[in-house]
Simulated scan of single mutants.
Amino acid sequence: MPKLGMEPVRKRQLIDAAIETLCRYGWHETTVVRIGREAGLSPGIIHHYFAGKDDLLAAAMRRILVEFRHEVTSRLSAAGDPRGRLRAVIEGCFAPSQFRPEICAAWLAFWAQAPFAPELDRLRRVYISRLRSTVLADLRRLLPEEQAELAVLSLASLIDGLFLRAASGDSRVSPEIALELAFGHLDQFLAGRAQVH
């Protein structure tokens, strides 16, 4: 029986180990045994806290999404105009805590498994909805509605695509390049568009 008060510590250890193992081996080669070995814990303890690999990935993604939300909201609070707020969201997406190999690998596994696991699919829908509503609110202040809808889809696709490219081992996709591409994409979309008031 685990010691009283150890649950949060153990869960964090296991989530960290799962993220690291995903980065090293990919989804299909990530096993409960490998996660346990990475955490320095027995595989049995994993089943005490998590129903299985999907459950552990969902826990990892919940934590990643909380950290992502913190990165974005802390930047939004310092942003002024709509363009500055949009840049703040992009900066939050590619913050050092987010755009690193382990987190990109977790995102890759998440996108691949979400259609097959209800909890992962729910998290995917929450992520898409929150990112869309955050970005769309400011795009609507800069673009007509139809263009704002296209811009949010385009920008979200670029952000997710850069994460997937990085997770696939494309070394050209550094945080600096990702920011440059996303900022450039936003600027191109906004260039010459009529302001909406």
Rank of each mutant, 00 (worst) to 15 (best):
P2C: 12
M6K: 12
R12Y: 05
Q13F: 15
D16L: 11
E20L: 14
T21E: 00
C23V: 10
G26M: 10
T30S: 11
I35V: 14
I35T: 11
R37P: 11
E38K: 12
E38I: 02
L41I: 08
S42C: 14
Y49H: 05
F50Y: 07
A51Y: 10
A51N: 14
K53F: 04
L57S: 09
M61V: 06
M61G: 03
M61S: 05
I64V: 15
L65C: 08
H70Y: 10
S74W: 06
G80H: 03
E91W: 05
G92W: 01
W107R: 05
W107T: 01
F110H: 11
A112Q: 12
D121H: 07
R122S: 06
L123E: 00
R125H: 11
R125G: 03
V126G: 07
Y127A: 11
I128R: 13
S133R: 10
T134G: 00
L136M: 01
D138V: 04
R140M: 11
L143D: 00
E145S: 02
A148E: 08
L158F: 04
I159N: 08
I159D: 01
I159S: 07
S168L: 09
D170I: 06
A178Y: 04
E180T: 14
A182Q: 04
G184V: 07
L186S: 09
F189R: 15
F189Y: 12
